[in-house]
């Protein structure tokens, strides 16, 4: 167990969404209230200066988890602690560079809001904005342009500058490069890496792209239907994936130069997070399903000889 307090820690974090069908739908179609358990009991931590990669397929709750951590959503249960305190203190970089900047605001206005919230006096904001722009690879000439005048990659740089202006200790990056062209993706990933080396900021990197996560993360957490199923230092996770889901996920990645013939095939699709199955969430698609998997939720097991590599799977529990 860790001695010092990590920068950010979540304790039993849950976030449910309730949908209440309309009066007619309830009376005539007999539809019931539904609970989507987007995040259902997550304990993760992020160290100072560390990048934690969060991977999973669409609908697994990874974006919701990121948004709870920066305080966009209030948790249904559990806590997010920033160095032991509950006030949210993280910034966010968004997936869609076209929707994440207000189309009616110039770059100056966009950065100005961040600087104002940080308490930078009015007369210093211009200089500060110029510094920020230069840091993310843009020039002062861009200060009075509107988002539509920029390419996707440049917009994402502005988004990074906006987050940076708050001098955050943690930045939650929600699919920061998945909407960008390959050549531009690398530029942004290198930018984030450079920022971390310079300022010691921590990242929660949310991505469905395992190659990106492998490249940029120190540790990785794999999420499935609202729960973390495996977490480990990056190398250890990619070399020795221990949860059947992680194994399938890793073998499904198209890799440059590999033939792709020898892969584990997952059957079926991701079940919905509305009323997930009791017991292990992955049992419906798991090739190693046992009786116990349907009965109780697996407890975390640390892989022997691999510190920090934890897996939530009955199969592992029975082995060790």
């Amino acid at each position: 167990m860790k001695e010092r307090t990590p920068l950010v820690k979540t304790i039993g974090l849950k976030r449910y969404f309730y949908s209440r069908p309309g009066f007619l739908a309830r009376c005539l179609l007999g539809e019931k209230e539904r609970t989507t358990k987007a995040v259902d009991g997550v304990d993760i931590y992020i160290e100072e200066g560390e990048t934690l990669g969060l991977v999973g397929e669409s609908g697994c709750g990874k974006s919701t988890l990121g948004r709870v951590i920066v305080g966009l959503y209030a948790p249904t249960a559990g806590q997010v602690l920033y160095e032991g305190k509950t006030e949210p203190n993280g910034q966010m970089i968004f997936q869609n560079p076209y929707a994440s900047l207000n189309p009616r605001h110039t770059v100056r206005q966009i950065l100005g809001v961040s600087l104002e919230k940080r308490g930078v006096p009015l007369e210093e904001r211009e200089d500060e904005s110029v510094k920020l722009l230069e840091r993310v690879g843009l020039t002062p000439l861009h200060l009075d342009q509107y988002p539509r005048q920029f390419s996707g990659g440049q917009r994402q740089r502005i988004g990074v500058a906006r987050a940076l202006a708050m001098r955050p200790r943690l930045i939650v990056a929600d699919e920061p490069v998945s909407a960008l062209d390959v050549s531009v993706q690398a530029q942004i990933l290198n930018l984030l890496e450079g920022l971390q080396a310079e300022t010691g900021v921590s990242f929660l990197l949310i991505s469905h792209d395992l190659a990106v996560v492998h490249h940029a993360s120190h540790r990785v957490a794999v999420m499935y239907l609202g729960k973390i199923v495996e977490t480990a230092p990056t190398e250890s996770l990619f070399e020795n994936p221990s949860h059947p889901y992680t194994q399938a996920l890793l073998s499904a990645i198209p890799r440059l130069g590999a033939t792709g013939e020898s892969r584990i095939r997952l059957q079926g699709t991701v079940p919905s997070a509305v009323d997930p199955p009791p017991g292990c969430r992955f049992q419906t698609r798991c090739a190693h399903k046992m009786d116990i998997c349907a009965e109780m939720e697996p407890l975390p097991v640390e892989i022997r000889g691999d510190p920090g590599h934890v897996v939530w799977c009955h199969l592992r529990a029975s082995k060790s």
Partner: peptide, 13 residues
């Protein structure tokens, strides 16, 4: 629901 509104919320507007 657009991300720029979320961004403004995260900034504390």
């Amino acid at each position: 629901t657009k991300e720029y509104v979320e961004a403004a919320k995260v900034l504390g507007r």
